[in-house]
């Protein structure tokens, strides 16, 4: 598996898009820092961007890599390697290279700005951890979609739809629910609803750490009331891990029966 991972990683690290992605974060980091002139504020702005953008990029890279390397995967399948090792290697290769772009792209400007001397270092690290989680989650989800969809265009469509649903539509439906049923107790419902969306979960996780009540919103407030800050963070972290593990598990199950 490590060999496949290494080559997928090299392949991606040399593609133009990895650099575009890296440069985007690099420029974003510098611009935000010089506009805000404050590491704390920059972290909040970054959160809003990372929470929407990393899932999108993870999704697109995931499906793109799967479909583009299809013939090559077939070549690998004819080698004496276990199927699931091939796909796990590819999956980790994509996720790690995307995470590296994120960490380096944002890390460099913040370190240059004096992150290590600022108190925001923990908030910033949490932001990167959440970004990494989102990468791993959405690459896994998009790989699942690609594995189940033979048609490239359809697969791409489903993947983008999944992102749109989790990043935008989900919140809309959720909000409608809250408005329509506002005469009922909705704490538990909203807690559960948050768990089913990794993007919401990440947002709450970061806001709990930042401790900005004004930005927490209804779900965040419920979350904090229910679990308190520390337990809340642990639980949301745990659920994020589940969000990585379950799609990876499904990928492996799907692979057992898949024809190439």
């Amino acid at each position: 598996m490590l060999k496949i991972l290494k080559y997928s990683f090299y392949d991606l690290m040399r593609s133009r898009w990895s650099y575009v992605y890296f440069l985007f974060y690099l420029i974003l980091g510098f611009v935000l820092l010089f506009l805000n002139n404050d590491v704390d504020k920059a972290v909040i702005t970054l959160m809003n961007i990372i929470i929407v953008l990393t899932p999108l990029i993870g999704t697109i890279f995931g499906v793109m890599y799967y479909y583009n390397s299809k013939e090559f995967t077939e070549l690998l399948l004819a080698q004496p390697i276990n199927r699931s090792k091939i796909f796990m290697g590819q999956y980790l290769g994509i996720s790690i290279s995307l995470t590296l772009s994120l960490v380096l792209g944002l890390g460099i400007p913040f370190v240059l700005y004096g992150l290590f001397k600022s108190t925001a270092i923990f908030n910033f690290s949490l932001l990167l951890v959440v970004g990494a989680f989102l990468n791993f989650i959405f690459v896994a989800l998009s790989y699942n979609i690609a594995l189940s969809t033979e048609n490239k265009i359809k697969g791409f469509g489903y993947a983008i739809l999944m992102w749109l649903f989790l990043a935008v539509i989900y919140d809309g439906i959720f909000l409608t629910f809250l408005v329509v049923f506002n005469s009922y107790p909705l704490d538990k419902f909203s807690l559960a609803a948050t768990m089913f969306n990794p993007i919401d979960l990440s947002r709450i996780l970061i806001l709990l750490k930042l401790d900005i009540s004004a930005l927490l919103g209804y779900t965040g407030a419920v979350f904090r009331k229910f679990f308190g800050t520390n337990l809340g963070m642990m639980i949301s972290m745990g659920v994020l891990m589940l969000w990585v593990m379950l799609p990876v598990l499904r990928m492996n199950l799907k692979l057992r029966k898949k024809d190439f």
């Binding site: 997928s8 392949d11 040399r14 004819a78 080698q79």
Partner: peptide, 16 residues
């Protein structure tokens, strides 16, 4: 498969 060589129909490799 270690004792088997396969030439696939379409050769498409990682471009980079």
């Amino acid at each position: 498969r270690n004792n088997l060589n396969y030439l696939p129909q379409i050769a498409n490799f990682p471009p980079n």
